[in-house]
Design a protein around this nucleic acid. Structure first.
Lengths: 166, 166
DNA sequence: ACGTTTTACTTGCATGTTGAAGTTTTTCGG
DNA sequence: CCGAAAAACTTCAACATGCAAGTAAAACGT
């Protein structure tokens, strides 16, 4: 029972228009990340999540970031991040170092080899993003998309995440 | 290195506008499914994927579908679906039956109890969809969103799974 | 100053997912 | 028709993830 049918109930069902929108959106929501994941896995041997982590580091001052900031940036739990960093560390692309300013914190640092890895993989990734997201849209649609996404992000803010959250 | 910097390369980098759009979009792509997943897990004890499977069945004639069609509808691999159906079968919400018309195929059938489960969970799910997607948008934006999503789906079509390198 | 909370991770376990076989049934080319 | 290829699953082993605990260091309240 996808939202949008079944009368006789009090909840605000989706009307036919909203329903169509929702069906189209959920496809995007599930397909685009899967597509990018597949592309990265194939061309660079890493997951989208791992790419986001390294990409964030590559843009940070000193290519360094606190793990909790990294987790937020990559939209994942700290637990997930911790294990992702462990994997990247084994591959020699990231290393850990205790934060001198806060004994609780750990810093993740992108190594030179890690930087090369991201830099090497980025072009193909960008191309995939273009191909699957930007190219099919008009300039006006790209503008709309940005506004829509920002609006949604404003409400879907950092609420969820049961554990790792306190 | 998120798309949008580093000159001196031949690939078409994202310009600052595109970059902002992409950053906003990827947040949506990662957060919205996670949010809905959490909501369903919490309120109904099932994953988004399982919900999509049961929802698809609930709308099908005889509440019955071939597993491969189900997999396509829920945007997952057959392997994933097979195991999801196994779980739902254990809970008594779905049962399997060989397709009389094709000895290779298996049909998935939503039981009465399964139907009650979906019907019971749907209102809260719809409410979550509204809250996180539709409510923050104007009517015009909802219209745009639909067009955008349809456009993207048209290209990101079923190429998925497996390389297309040569 | 000191006990309590909060923050920042790490780790172990149960579970879910992927990818590569393996099985059975259909379909297709000749 | 017949043998080869494809389609529709199922299963198994690696691997990734979420959740619940556990540890350690700062912050906080009195």
């Amino acid at each position: 029972m996808l939202p949008g049918m079944e009368p006789g109930a009090q909840p605000r069902w989706l009307d036919p228009d909203e329903r169509e929108t929702w069906l189209a959106l959920i496809k995007v929501l599930l397909r685009v990340p899967a597509t990018l994941d597949a592309q990265l896995q194939r061309d660079a041997g890493i997951s989208l999540f791992e790419y986001l982590v390294m990409a964030a580091l590559s843009e940070a001052p000193e290519r360094t970031m606190r793990l909790s900031d990294l987790a937020a940036r990559a939209e994942g739990t700290l637990s997930r991040l911790s294990q992702a960093v462990a994997r990247l560390e084994k591959r020699g692309w990231v290393r850990r170092r205790p934060d001198p300013n806060d004994g609780r914190a750990t810093l993740g640092i992108l190594t030179d080899e890690g930087y090369r890895q991201v830099a090497g993989g980025a072009p193909a990734h960008v191309e995939a993003v273009r191909q699957h997201v930007f190219d099919p849209l008009t300039k006006a649609q790209q503008r709309h998309l940005r506004e829509i996404a920002e609006r949604i992000n404003a409400t879907t803010g950092p609420d969820r995440r049961k554990a790792d959250r306190f």
